[in-house]
Design a protein around this nucleic acid. Structure first.
Lengths: 196, 196
DNA sequence: ATAACAATGTTGGCAACGCCTACATCGGGG
DNA sequence: CCCCGATGTAGGCGTTGCCAACATTGTTAT
């Protein structure tokens, strides 16, 4: 029986979890591979087995973030009614909730700091998120709640408003009440913007 | 006469200029005080006279960015007609133009990495930018182009859309044509959203 | 004039960091 | 049973941000 086995067991997952914790409550600048290794009780060079570079770890973290947010949102949207207004509200609420609970992670996800052509996955991940919204818009068009037009182009203001709202809510430290208000306002704004 | 005088002359301004250049074309991660000093032809510790810490330099850079964008936008707005639609269009165009030309700088300005309470200036700087927009909204209300409501709250979707659009345009690498399209779309969207 | 002074830049050094190469240890498949 | 790939360790290189002590300059007061 060893106090500390030579092999860690699941270093990769442990590192990702520790990294996210550090990211959340100490900021991205404080994230150091060596310190992660220390916290995991492992040698400074061990993480390199799983992430060849620090950026690789950040990319993996971002990818995990995209997975989490898309599954969370698809799940919530599945439990939501079919009306365009309802779905826009659910979309906004879900995204804003995630953004506030994972501000630093979201920053990381959209920071254009990933290597030039990045991993193919990191390019595809945001697209799945995007599709969630374009699908809602397409449904809205079928229901007559959204005016005609090319979906991809119609979607731009929606993305922009959503992404911008999260930034605002986080950086301004919105209270729960302000969040509710801004979601309601945003839904009204979007419904009017897309009305035929 | 000395080839390199002991005193630099205007190290502070030089450092800021070099830092912005580096930021623009090599990214924020590549910004090193020592390298800036090297490029300025000065000893590694010299910058500390003007910026006690690296973050202090970044804060100064962000502040300068806010100054530049607000003056650019106020100037452009001064040359613009009085109609709400015109002013919203000019606002959007001006901000988007700046954002695309100074993507990394804008990132820095809104990165919530500035020290907790930051310098008072860094808190006030975004507010001046914000006021530019709220003033337009207030004018719009007087003209009857904007529905009634508390300005600060009404402004949230506008800020969100504006800020989000810049992020989208930069990260997706919008072409000049796409930029024009998205500005037009955004104006329509906003006008509908605020119509009484 | 000149002495005191604050501002500015230099030198040297510290600890931490990311990353690299070579080696050690484990566990599972021939 | 043994070998081999996967995983972790050891040690080291070059760089970084930051600090303390010292040097140089321009100004200001006497």
């Amino acid at each position: 029986m060893k106090a500390r086995p030579y092999h860690h067991g699941d270093l990769r997952a442990t590192l990702l979890a520790l990294a996210e914790a550090t990211l959340r409550d100490r900021g991205p600048g404080e994230l150091s591979l060596r310190e992660l290794a220390r916290e995991a009780g492992v040698s400074p060079a061990a993480p390199s087995r799983h992430f060849r570079t620090k950026q690789a770890l950040l990319d993996a973290l971002a990818l995990e973030g995209f997975d989490r947010v898309t599954t969370a949102m698809t799940k919530l949207l599945a439990e939501t009614g079919d009306s365009f207004a309802e779905r826009i509200g659910a979309l906004t609420r879900a995204y804003l909730t995630f953004a506030i609970a994972n501000a630093a992670l979201l920053d990381l996800m959209f920071s254009r700091k990933h290597d030039p052509e990045a991993s193919a996955e990191l390019v595809a991940a945001p697209r799945r998120l995007l599709t969630l919204a374009t699908d809602i818009l397409a449904d809205g068009q079928r229901q007559g709640a959204v005016r005609a037009g090319e979906i991809e182009r119609l979607a731009v203001p929606l993305f922009a408003a959503l992404q911008g709202l999260t930034g605002l809510a986080v950086s301004a430290g919105f209270t729960a009440e302000q969040i509710d208000e801004s979601i309601a306002d945003m839904v009204v704004f979007v419904l009017r913007g897309y009305a035929p």
